[in-house]
Design a protein around this nucleic acid. Structure first.
Ligand code: ZN
Ligand code: ZN
Ligand code: ZN
Ligand code: ZN
Lengths: 144, 144
DNA sequence: TAAATTTTGCAACATTGTTGCAAAATTACA
DNA sequence: TGTAATTTTGCAACAATGTTGCAAAATTTA
C-alpha cells in the first residue's frame, strides 16, 4: 500500500511525467481515484472531498487527465460520465484500455476488469472497427 | 417502404399494442425514428421536428417508450443519451437487444447492427453477468 | 528571488433534465 | 354519437450539469 507520503510522491511523479504542474487539486483528485478502486463521476469529487474543489476546476482537471491519458471514460446509458485511472502503460498517444468494464447492479460500482480482454467482433462487410467498448452489468464478486 | 398513410397506421397499431394512447407527439417521434434509420438523441427531436414539441413532452415520451420496450438506450462516453427503436420481438417484459452498436467516427451516426451478435465474455470468478453492451466505433459502410 | 507560465476560483451564462398542475386530447362506454 | 373518465400535453418554475472569460494565485523556470 505505502503511506500517505509515498502516495503523494508517486502522484507527483505521475504528473511530472505528463508535463503537468503538481498542484493540490490534481493531487487530491488522483488520491481519490487511487483510494476508490473503481470509477468515479463528477458528483463523487464534490462529495468525497468535502466540497473543497471548485466545480469548474474538477471539470478542467478531468479533461486535462483525459488529454494526457491518465484517465479514461467508461460508457453509460445515463447522463453521468464515469472515469477511471489508466494503467501505467497508457500514454498521451497510445492507450492500452482494451479491457472490459463491469457495473454492479447491487452496489452500483463500476470497475475496470483489467485482465478481461475484449473479444474480436465480426462486423458486417464494409465496416471498419477502430475501438470496441464492452460494459457488462450484473453482480460483482463482493455483492454475490 | 409504404406511403405516409400506411406508416401512420403501423405506428398507431404499435402504440395500441403497448396500450398507449395514439397521440400526435408519439406518432411524430416514432416517424422520426423510422425515417432516421439510426439512433437519435434529445436534441435531434427539437431540430428535426421544427420545434413543434415541448421539451418536457419529448422527455416523457422517450421514457414511456423505454418503459414499454419500444426503444432502447445506447451507451455513450459523452453526456448525450442515444435511443433506437427495438425490433418487433421486444416487449415490455422481454428484450431481444443482444446486438452490437456501431458509432461512425466520420458521419457521427450511431446504428444498431442487428445481425451482429454479442460474444460471450469470460468474467473473473465471482462475477455474474446479466447484460452485455458492446459499442464499436470506426468507419461505417457509407463513409468508407 | 524575480519573471514567465500555468492553474485556479469566481461570476455569469448555456444546456439539460425534473416536477406540479391545469388545460387539452384521447379513450371508454352508454 | 355524445358525455364522462382517463391520459397526455404544455407551461412555469426549478434543479442539476456543463462552459467561458478573466483576474488572482500558485507553480515552474532560470
Ligand atoms: Zn457490487
Ligand atoms: Zn477501465
Ligand atoms: Zn459513417
Ligand atoms: Zn440497438
Amino acid at each position: 500500500m505505502g503511506n500517505k507520503q509515498q502516495i503523494t510522491e508517486r502522484i507527483a511523479a505521475l504528473l511530472k511525467d505528463s508535463k503537468l504542474s503538481v498542484t493540490e487539486t490534481r493531487t487530491k483528485i488522483l488520491e481519490l481515484f487511487m483510494k476508490s478502486n473503481g470509477a468515479l463521476e463528477h458528483s463523487d469529487f464534490e462529495k468525497l472531498a468535502g466540497k473543497s474543489f471548485d466545480r469548474v476546476t474538477v471539470y478542467r482537471t478531468l479533461q486535462t487527465f483525459l488529454d494526457k491519458g491518465i484517465i479514461h471514460k467508461i460508457p453509460t446509458t445515463d447522463t453521468s460520465v464515469r472515469y477511471a485511472v489508466c494503467k501505467s502503460e497508457c500514454t498521451e498517444h497510445h492507450h492500452h484500455d482494451h479491457h472490459v468494464h463491469f457495473k454492479c447492479e447491487a452496489c452500483g460500482h463500476t470497475i475496470c476488469l483489467d485482465e478481461t480482454n475484449i473479444p474480436e467482433i465480426q462486423l458486417p462487410k464494409g465496416f471498419a472497427a477502430n475501438n470496441v467498448e464492452v460494459v457488462v452489468s450484473g453482480v460483482c464478486k463482493s455483492c454475490k
